[in-house]
Nucleic acid binder design. Structure first.
Lengths: 263, 263
DNA sequence: GCGAGCCTTCCACTCAGTGGAAGTCGCGTC
DNA sequence: GACGCGACTTCCACTGAGTGGAAGGCTCGC
């Protein structure tokens, strides 16, 4: 679940304000590991709050619908939170515009199709389509994965502002599998290739048995705002149809976002 | 946006607690109408809070990531809210399990594919796939539509506990188009037919020019927990392929949820 | 230059929020 | 079937976090 660098620190300081305590309660479901359901006591522990305080906070959340009490007495994130969350413009607009193209891509490949954006120093997965027989991968909508070991991540990093690249390469890069590239120099070269080629290829660097092709999505200002990819089981030779389809989807979405090449 | 009966009352009473004021701020983006971005002053008005209080609340939300300040100074719902929201078990589990089948359905029909659940007295849209050329409809993921005028809604209502049906039929039913059925008696008959047939057909009752076929999804206990539908442009004759595909998708999802017919 | 909107900051008052402690509930054990 | 345990709920006196009116900035456009 890659607990990234900058965003949300997890338990840490609940802070003196009511609001921060309210958030600590919600964060208990996210950090350190994402869980479905927690008892009141568990929430209190994870949030670092006294039980009675937690009790009141949880009560408020439940009243609003941000948390739900399950039959067994435990709590889980509530529908209201989902309802409000999916309204968030960034994710919603992008999804709405991109979905038809992702569908097309899925129809060609019948493999995982990913759409991700750069948030902080992570690839944040905005959408994921999968079929019945797709490879096992760990991405999930709303999840974060590292930039240097995923197809979409590499594309996003390649087109990020140079200070972001520097910052990312300055920190130690986890090696997930033998072929994960962790050398900053090699990565720099790789990013240059990705910019030149217009697509990124990735194989066996995050999940064993899976490879991907990813391409950048540009908005009306020509900025890279997202990346699409197809993730397939690793095969001896690359399927050129996938590359073409990913490129086409990326182009289609970019056009829908108002991008006009070169002018 | 059908502001339903029971859930979230919108502006109303902010209440004396900090939490309720915090929620009032978020609700400002939802009710009375969903909006993308608001100025601080607008939030204060919609939430019914003094400006300085709003200022502080908004500050807390921004610090956590639940709201984002845009370049023009206005605020919109923040990515963090989306990130947490998509983690909500109900929606997430259902989506994950159903998606592959929805994909199949989409591939057959190339029209809107909807997945909805019953929440309160509304159909809550959990997932929606659409292609490039699909009809214009007003459903959206996270949105609510009335039970008596949509395909999924009719299916959900038909299989709801009888007290829910009674409650729903007791209130006045809005007539959206000439062919919207609003008579409780006619609807009761219709619901019985839907239960008998196993699918619901709906035509020109919510949006002009669109029709749909919907089928129920059952969980391991045999309860109807959701409904799938395909929404197409209205045509003189019904396409039997759509009905078959919807039934098949519903069956597939039900099976994945652990439903075994009859035993 | 002036007014209108909109946002930010300040600060004395006070009531909402706090959390330790005591009470309740349900369950498995001896 | 009383006992203990863990998990939850309620209580309440204390107090500092939160409140909101007011004043100060900033930025337009006329």
């Amino acid at each position: 679940m890659a607990n990234a660098t900058q965003p949300h620190g997890g338990d840490a300081a609940p802070g003196p304000s009511v609001a921060s305590r309210m958030f600590a309660v919600i964060d208990a479901f996210t950090a350190p590991t994402a869980v479905r359901a927690l008892t009141l006591t568990a929430i209190a522990e994870r949030a670092g709050l006294p039980l009675s305080t937690t009790h009141r906070m949880v009560g408020e959340w439940v009243a609003w619908g941000g948390l739900t009490r399950l039959d067994d007495g435990r709590y889980s994130l509530g529908l209201r939170l989902w309802e409000v969350g999916v309204q968030t413009p960034t994710a919603r607009n992008l999804r709405t515009i991109a979905l038809p193209y992702l569908e097309d891509l899925y129809e060609v490949a019948h493999e995982h199709v990913h759409l991700a954006i750069l948030d902080g120093l992570d690839a944040l997965y905005v959408e994921k389509l999968s079929g019945h027989r797709a490879v096992r991968v760990i991405s999930r909508v709303g999840g974060r994965l590292p930039l240097h070991a995923t197809g979409v991540g590499l594309v996003l990093l390649a087109h990020a502002p140079s200070d972001v690249i520097d910052e990312y390469l300055a920190k130690p890069l986890p090696q997930f599998l033998p072929s994960t590239v962790t050398s900053p120099d090699v990565l720099r070269k790789r990013l240059a290739d990705i910019r030149a080629l217009g697509v990124a290829f990735m194989s066996e660097e995050m999940t064993a048995g899976s490879s991907s092709v990813a391409a950048p999505i540009l908005d009306r200002t020509g900025q890279v705002v997202a990346a699409v990819s197809v993730v397939t089981p690793t095969t001896p030779t690359r399927d050129p149809a996938h590359e073409a389809a990913v490129r086409q989807a990326a182009r289609g979405i970019s056009r829908s976002l108002g991008y006009r090449r070169a002018t």
